[in-house]
């Protein structure tokens, strides 16, 4: 790596009680890199990316995000979190606010932007995810795919340096998956640093710089997407690919 990595994991370990969920994770992510993380369920993929914005806390090792080390007595955790955007599998839009307000509230209260400015920014992002006509509606009135695109826009409004995607298409009906993936592909093309936990291999091939395969809490294999999917080297990866391909 020529420049400093924007995310650094150094011998990171985490336990849920007695269960060793992350084992000796070493990871470096450069600015603008697009990483896809895949693996069987329970392998710790979600836990790992949730450590990046401190939704989960690690017990051993070092995590450095954008030059700031994440420790126990982190004072400006809210500030760090606003630099790292996250999109969830269950969208988690605020149901009691309109779509527009969902996008505005963070900018207004955290970044302290005037409401007018925040609304303008919100509308530009709604345009990017192609959903401007729903601005006045409530999340309950939108389809799953629409809600997820709004969720992406909401994170983007905070102008994050890093975007985390946690299985964002897994809860969608098949015909809505494409619209969300298209938005993510556009985002990748503009150079956003992205960590994507997903099963969508087509997406990985199109966009990812690296694929990371995790199993039982550790990184088993890393490679370029084509090389990984066509020719998985480790036995576990081979089993996994075999199972996933079987269902296509």
């Amino acid at each position: 790596m020529s420049e400093k990595p924007v995310i650094l994991f150094d011998k990171v370990n985490k336990w849920f009680g007695d269960f060793h969920v992350l084992r000796d994770i070493d990871l470096k992510v450069a600015k603008g890199e697009r990483i896809v993380i895949c693996g069987p369920s329970g392998s710790g993929k979600s836990t790992m990316i949730r450590c990046i914005n401190r939704l989960e806390e690690h017990q051993q090792g070092t995590i450095v995000v954008d030059g700031v080390e994440l420790t126990d007595d982190l004072k400006h955790i809210d500030h760090i979190r606003s630099e790292v955007g996250m999109v969830f599998q269950s969208f988690n839009l605020f149901p009691h606010m309109t779509v527009l307000n969902n996008l505005v509230i963070g900018q207004h209260l955290v970044r302290r932007l005037p409401k007018m400015e925040a609304e303008e920014i919100a509308m530009t992002y709604l345009e990017r995810v192609k959903i401007t006509d729903q601005a006045g509606k409530y999340p309950g009135q939108l389809s799953g795919g629409q809600q997820q695109r709004v969720a992406i826009a909401r994170s983007l409004c905070m102008n994050p340096k890093i975007m985390l995607f946690d299985e964002v298409t897994s809860a969608l009906d098949p015909e809505m998956v494409k619209e969300v993936l298209d938005v993510m592909i556009d985002l990748a093309r503009e150079g956003m640093t992205m960590l994507v936990v997903t099963h969508e291999m087509g997406f990985a091939r199109t966009v990812a710089d690296r694929v990371i395969f995790m199993d039982e809490g550790q990184i088993i294999e890393e490679n370029t997407p084509d090389a990984f999917f066509d020719n998985p080297a480790s036995e576990r990866a081979q089993i996994f690919i075999g199972q996933v391909l079987h269902h296509l």
Binding site: W15, G17, D24, Q59, I220, E221, E222, S234
Partner: peptide
Amino acid sequence: MEPILAPFKMPQPAPYQSKG
């Protein structure tokens, strides 16, 4: 590109302060 492989690690017991 050559795949980067890592050897498999067995689970370790949790550190004293976080469990028990």
